[in-house]
Every structure is written in C-alpha cells, then in structure tokens.
C-alpha cells in the first residue's frame, strides 16, 4: 500500500494544482516582501531621526509586531477590521496587508541597524572629497548600507515565506489548502495520501527557503571579512 501511496502525487492534475497553490503562496510572499522593503526603508530612515516622539512611535510599532503573533494579526484584520469597517476583504489581500506591515517593521529595524553601523568618518571623508549631499548618499552611504543589510533582509524574506503558510487559516487557497483538498478526495482510495502530500509540501518549502538562508549566511560571512 505504502509503495503505491506516492502515486497519489502523480494522478491527474494533482502536481499542477499543488504548483498553482504554491504560486499563490509565493506570490503573496513576493508582493509583501517588495512592499515591506519599501515601507521598511522609510521606517529605517525615520528611526535614525533625532526626534524622541518619532523614535518612540517607530519602536512601538516594531514591538507591537514582535509581541503579538502574526497569526493573531491575520485574524485581527481578517475578522476584526473587516467587521468594524463593514467591508469584505479576501484572505489574499489581508495576508498582503499584514505581511507588508510586519515586513516594514522588521525591515525598518534592519535598515536602522545598517545605517547606524556606518562609520562616521566615511561621511566626513566623503564631504572632504567634495561630494554633494546626494552624491554622498549615492556613492558612499547607500552602497555600504545595502551590503550591510542584505543578509538580514534575505533572512527576513525566508521568514516571510515560511509565515505565508498561515494564510490557509484565513481561507486562502494556498498550497496547503490544495493539499488538503487532494487528501480529502483521495483518502478513501489512498489512506496514506496525507503522508505523501504533506511530505511533498514540506519539501517544496524547503526547496524555496534553503537556498535563501544559505545565501544569507554566505553574504554574512563575506561581509565579516
């Protein structure tokens, strides 16, 4: 029976449907990462501000995401916000909103770290060779900051990809949902279907996340030297 169980993956359009589910997941992750990064850069710049109020608000914003689990945020927006405003939002939209806001918070922290680690004398020596304000940013500060934040940013991306698995809990037809449908349909015929389907999804996530985390580690090691 077990030997045959794996065949459940190759029946009909199973693989194709799983792949489509995966694309939904990846799409949500990708869009959120992009939006989160842009917002995050803004956050990071804000966090280098000297104003105590701005500092406090940004810090508060970050902590709010660090203390309350992401799944709770998905619930708050999916059930709470829609309810309060009396609107309907699809799970996909909710997911993108929550992940983008979360990404902005974490990305902001990474950007802040990178900006603060830039040596002060670089700014002075940049000025000394006559660079304008924009020139200073364009040629000296930004390239260095990017190098410093890249490992962290990639790491954050893997975390976001992994967290997209939660969208199934707010009704998105993602790779897990598709998997569940396939299992339900074939469970009578193939009792071990859940083993194979979840096993495959496990591997699919690994295939996406592993290279990313390897890359992040490599960049980190390179930067340390």
């Amino acid at each position: 029976m077990q030997n045959l169980g794996i065949n459940v993956l190759f029946e009909g359009t199973t693989l194709q449907r799983l792949f489509e589910g995966l694309m939904m997941t990846a799409g949500i992750a990708f869009i959120s990462i992009i939006i989160g990064s842009f917002l995050g850069i803004g956050m990071g710049l804000l966090r280098t501000s000297k104003s105590g109020i701005v500092q406090f608000i940004c810090r508060f914003y970050l902590e709010v995401f660090r203390i309350i689990p992401i799944l709770v945020w998905l619930f708050i927006v999916y059930f709470g916000v829609t309810n309060a405003l009396d609107i309907h939002l699809d799970g996909e939209i909710v997911a993108v909103i929550v992940f983008s806001l979360w990404g902005a918070a974490e990305m902001g922290d990474i950007v802040r770290g990178a900006l603060e680690s830039l040596p002060k004398h670089q700014i002075e020596s940049g000025k000394a060779i006559g660079l304008s304000f924009w020139g200073l940013y364009r040629y000296v500060l930004i390239p260095q900051a990017v190098r410093r934040m890249l490992p962290g940013a990639i790491n954050l991306s893997t975390r976001m990809v992994k967290t997209t698995s939660l969208v199934v809990m707010i009704g998105v037809i993602d790779v897990i949902k598709v998997g569940q449908q396939i299992i339900e349909r074939s469970v009578i015929k193939v009792p071990t279907a859940s083993f194979w389907v979840y096993g495959l999804i496990f591997i699919l996530y690994f295939i996406i996340c592993y290279p990313l985390s390897k890359l992040s580690k490599k960049l980190e090691a390179k930067w340390e030297n």
Binding site: Q2, K162, S165, I183, T192, W196, C209, S213
Partner: peptide, 23 residues
C-alpha cells in the same frame, strides 16, 4: 537543523499529525 529552520511549523505539524498517523 536545516530541515527544521527552512520549513514552516504549520507544515511540520500537519506532517507529524496527519501524515505520520497514516503510516
């Protein structure tokens, strides 16, 4: 370490709970 860090908990749980029971 690599397997655990590069996959979501939800899938780990589903695999443990639904997948392993079936075998």
């Amino acid at each position: 370490v690599e397997l655990s860090r590069n996959t979501p908990l939800l899938i780990q749980l589903f695999f443990l709970y639904f997948g392993l029971t079936k075998i």
